[in-house]
Computed example of a mutant assay.
Amino acid sequence: MNSTVRLAVQKSGRLSEGSMKLISSCGIHVSNGKGKLKAMASNFPIEFLFLRDDDIPGYVADGVADLGIVGENVVAEKDKDVKAIKKLGFSRCRLSIAIEKSKPYKGIQDLEGKNIATSYPKILGDYLSKNGVKADIHEISGSVEIAPSIGLAEAVCDIVSSGSTLFTNGLKEVETIYRSEAVMIANHNLDAEKEEIINKLLFRIEALQSAQNNKYILLNAPEQSLDKIISLLPGMRSPTVLPLAEKGWVSVHSVINENDFWEKIEGLREAGAEGILVVPIEKMIL
């Protein structure tokens, strides 16, 4: 296999950090020295392009890059001809409309005829149109939160993570219009060799995601309670049961989904389980 896949990632910022952490966790080694715009992995057929996140969908659509890691909000806003192939579970945020704290707000119709400043005119325009609201959208890049205080707009529409930036600038969220996380996008026209490389990369990512969503659990239990405990811990196929040195006791090993963790733990204790250990999983191959 002589093909190399080109992957575009943000050159700096939180999305960049999350992307490179993911790549590293997949066992792919890359040295991207300060200021470098290209780098080749040493142990996987993949080349990295370090770009502005706004440019990534265009590079992928044009075939300059085969893959890209970017926020779903950027993919939706740029509206390029790319396909989303994997949600990555980091850099979660929301796109929200905010107004001054002192202003009353009864609903989306309050924005009728207002000026709204944003870096996301397409997403905002689609949302307003869907809700039958006509407003004047002012596209600006950066420092959107300052718009109401300088008289540019009565409202803003911007990315929100914690909401602290809005609060600091005297604003309050009134509408969440889009939820986003990092996503891997791909060009539509990839040859078979590149598809094979991408499938290998996705396999590694899925192993990581499966591990993050599950925990390995070990516990000791009396044999008489085993049926009840197994019913609480179905695992991937069935729990592993091993005899202990003490007669009448066994050790049970299984995998538990993190969302079910606390509910299951209470049930296991009530069924007689003791010495419960819960261990994070680094990678999980299904």
Rank of each mutant, 00 (worst) to 15 (best):
I205H: 06
S161W: 14
I108T: 08
T165M: 13
I140C: 08
S143L: 13
I146C: 02
E195Q: 15
A182K: 02
A186G: 05
S164I: 14
A155M: 08
E181C: 10
G132Q: 07
H138N: 13
A192Q: 14
N169Q: 11
G113V: 00
P148D: 01
D191L: 11
I198N: 03
D126L: 10
E154C: 01
Y120T: 04
A153V: 03
N115D: 09
E206P: 04
D126H: 02
M184D: 03
I140M: 14
I116E: 05
E145A: 12
I198P: 02
E181N: 12
A147T: 02
R179V: 10
I185W: 04
L128W: 00
S164D: 15
G142H: 12
K194L: 07
V160E: 13
N187M: 04
V183T: 14
N131Q: 11
E175R: 08
L201C: 05
A207E: 15
Y178C: 01
G163K: 08
I140G: 07
S119M: 09
E206Y: 01
E196W: 03
Y127G: 05
G170N: 15
G113Q: 04
A155P: 07
G107L: 09
C157V: 11
S141K: 10
I140K: 14
E173Q: 11
S164E: 15
N189Y: 11
I159Q: 13
G113S: 11
R204G: 03
V160T: 09
I116C: 04
L111T: 07
I140Q: 10
Y127C: 05
I197E: 07
A153H: 04
L124D: 09
L128M: 06
Q209A: 01
V174T: 09
K200P: 07
E139V: 11
I108C: 06
S210Y: 08
A135D: 11
A153G: 06
F203Q: 15
I108Q: 06
I123G: 01
K106S: 15
D158A: 13
P121I: 06
A155L: 03
I146F: 13
F203N: 13
L208D: 01
I146H: 10
P148T: 06
D191C: 09
L111I: 03
N189E: 11
G132S: 11
E145T: 13
S210E: 13
L166R: 09
T168P: 00
L190E: 09
L201Q: 02
E181V: 07
N189M: 04
I205L: 01
A182S: 12
T168W: 06
V133R: 09
Y127M: 09
L111P: 02
